[in-house]
């Protein structure tokens, strides 16, 4: 009969291998692990921040004001109105462009990945287009679409589509032939195959592409706002530096950094949720 017992399957999928310690100490051990985990996570960043604060405290350098002043300025600079005018539009453009890139990249990627002849035919073209640095698209797209939200969203979408597209193609092409065999005998429709095999199987790869695309999206939005400087977070930061409003400039840099971090962490949370099976499966084999 069954040789191995389920480690902790079905009952608690989030826990690692069951510990054989008596239940009394388990709680304490878990607590200790949580404390150590938090210390590891927050320790160094907090220390570095404190160090910056301490070292810059007496700074008289024009370019590097004390962190305390930057933080003060942060509050007065990024008022709700300003955030509504400058930051939100940038974020909306970013997300719209990213979503567009995601949909188009995944759709085209699945198509190209599923039809070898299409992949062969478009291979050289894609290799070239991918190598064109996305920031250079800003002037070209501005020429065609003018300076508006449409241009900025397009810039983000066109710039970010490559990592999604190429990773999707790779993901689809590396689907295990045995998995395809398995599905072949089940007489699934194309949509069912997509839903039950292709998208989940290529999912980890697609997610890797989306992650790259998201960090690129932030860069593209800011570049488009700095290059065609009319509005947005990118323009504000540039104007601060041009008018030598140094603490405000630093507060803007800080804000951009925080945005980048929030986007990255948010993406990772979604990814952990959507690809729980993948983290579980690869963790189990590790």
């Amino acid at each position: 009969m069954v040789i191995r017992e389920l480690p902790s399957a079905a009952t608690d999928l989030t826990e690692g291998p069951a510990s054989d310690a008596p239940p009394r100490t388990v709680g304490r051990r878990r607590l200790r692990r949580a404390v150590v985990g938090t210390a590891l996570f927050a320790g160094l960043p907090a220390a570095l921040f404190a160090l910056w604060w301490a070292l810059s405290a007496g700074s008289t350098s024009f370019f590097f004001p004390p962190l305390s002043r930057i933080v003060d300025t942060f509050g007065t600079t990024w008022t709700p109105t300003r955030i509504g005018q400058d930051v939100l539009p940038s974020l909306v453009r970013l997300l719209a462009g990213f979503a567009l890139a995601g949909v188009v990249g995944i759709a085209l990627g699945v198509l190209i990945g599923s039809v070898p002849r299409l992949a062969w035919a478009l291979g050289p073209t894609l290799a070239f287009l991918r190598a064109v640095p996305p920031p250079l698209l800003v002037p070209a797209i501005m020429l065609v679409l003018g300076i508006g939200d449409g241009m900025r969203i397009t810039v983000v979408a066109v710039g970010c589509v490559w990592p999604v597209l190429l990773n999707t193609v790779d993901g689809v092409r590396s689907i295990d032939p045995l998995a395809r065999d398995t599905v072949a005998g089940l007489h699934l429709s194309a949509v069912q195959r997509l839903r039950h095999l292709v998208l989940p199987a290529a999912g980890p790869r697609i997610a890797a592409g989306l992650e790259q695309a998201l960090s690129l999206a932030l860069v593209m939005v800011v570049i488009s706002e700095m290059f065609a400087a009319r509005d947005g977070l990118g323009r504000s930061i540039l104007v601060f530096s041009q008018t030598f409003a140094i603490p405000a400039m630093w507060s803007g840099i800080l804000l951009l950094g925080v945005l980048g971090i929030l986007l990255a962490f948010g993406f990772r949370a979604v990814q952990r949720w959507a690809l729980a099976w993948w983290f579980g499966a690869t963790g189990a084999v590790r």
Binding site: V219, G234, I237, F240, G252, I253, G257, G260
Partner: peptide, 18 residues
């Protein structure tokens, strides 16, 4: 690890004014 996770997403374009 967490420090790298915090620093890595800071976009390079943020450093443009500096």
């Amino acid at each position: 690890a967490s420090t790298l996770d915090f620093l890595r997403p800071v976009p390079a374009v943020a450093l443009v004014p500096v």
